[in-house]
């Protein structure tokens, strides 16, 4: 079983979001980067499947050299090898084409990634990769099991419930909670990660189809109005007459 897990490098969930003075780029100053939390669910599920059935887990990141600490972290958690496509991830379509190109070369049985990145919030790449490769994409999945060597059973979230799907390998799936319990790398993992192969390849020619012109931040809230708990019913009156939401 060959599993490819795509990870992206994102600001930590508690990071302050600021932009450069021209509002054209994200201000990385003092920001800690982590593996995208949703990608971690994909990564740990892939490692669990490998532990149960044998095979290999390859992690793939489309990014510049500064993403390598998190690629090493994925290796420390338990992936076998890694590929970094040496390019700035311009947009979802660009990234999807890089992933599809790597997948075509290596014929993986399963391609996993998180349902979206917490910075761009696209929810796009998995379906684009499936479409580019002409294989099923199941998304967002919170359960993934192999029925046998050729078929997987997934549960995916839909509004108000869930859907159970069976697909033939190969396929793409995007992960969300609670597909697995993300792991913290142990000392042995961190030691062996240093010597695991991390291949750097140049991107294939692909055009981005969107470009970011500027960033902005939401307007600040006007401040909170406090209501006396003894007179809590007052809140309902305010919600109707002042906020006009009831």
């Amino acid at each position: 079983m060959k599993i490819l897990v795509c990870i992206s490098n994102v600001p930590d969930t508690t990071a302050k979001i600021n932009f450069t003075a021209d509002n054209k780029s994200f201000d990385k100053n003092g920001v800690q980067y982590v593996i995208n939390p949703w990608d971690e669910y994909a990564l740990t599920r892939a490692i669990e499947l490998k532990e149960a059935k044998g095979g290999t887990v390859t992690v793939l990141n489309v990014g510049e050299a500064d993403t390598e600490p998190n690629i090493r972290k994925a290796l420390a958690i338990g992936a076998d090898d890694a590929i970094r496509v040496n390019a700035y991830p311009k947009d979802s379509f660009f990234v999807a084409q890089q992933i599809a190109a790597i997948a075509k070369e290596n014929s993986y049985d399963i391609i996993l990634m998180g349902k979206e990145s917490i910075d761009y919030n696209g929810f796009q790449v998995h379906n684009m990769v499936g479409e580019l490769l002409g294989i099923p994409s199941v998304t967002p999945a919170f359960k993934l099991d192999l029925l046998d060597d050729t078929t997987a059973r997934l549960e995916r979230e839909i509004e108000g419930g869930k859907e159970i799907v069976e697909v033939k390998l190969p396929f793409v799936a995007s992960a969300q909670q609670p597909m697995s319990e993300p792991r913290i790398p142990n000392m042995r993992g961190i030691m062996t990660a240093r010597t695991k192969p991390l291949k750097v390849v140049e991107p294939v020619g692909a055009e981005a189809k969107t470009s970011i012109a500027a960033y902005s931040k939401p307007e600040k809230k006007g401040g909170v109005k406090m209501i006396d708990p003894e007179n809590a019913g007052e809140l309902i009156t305010l919600l109707r007459n002042e906020a006009k939401v009831l």
């Binding site: 999807a96 696209g122 796009q124 379906n127 479409e131 998304t139 509004e159």
Partner: peptide, 23 residues
């Protein structure tokens, strides 16, 4: 921008060679 809308939109972006913005 529902699960359905974003899924279909992503696939169509590939098929129709279009630009996609979600959210």
């Amino acid at each position: 921008n529902t699960g359905i809308g974003a899924t279909v939109g992503s696939k169509l972006a590939v098929r129709l060679n279009g630009s996609l913005a979600t959210n």
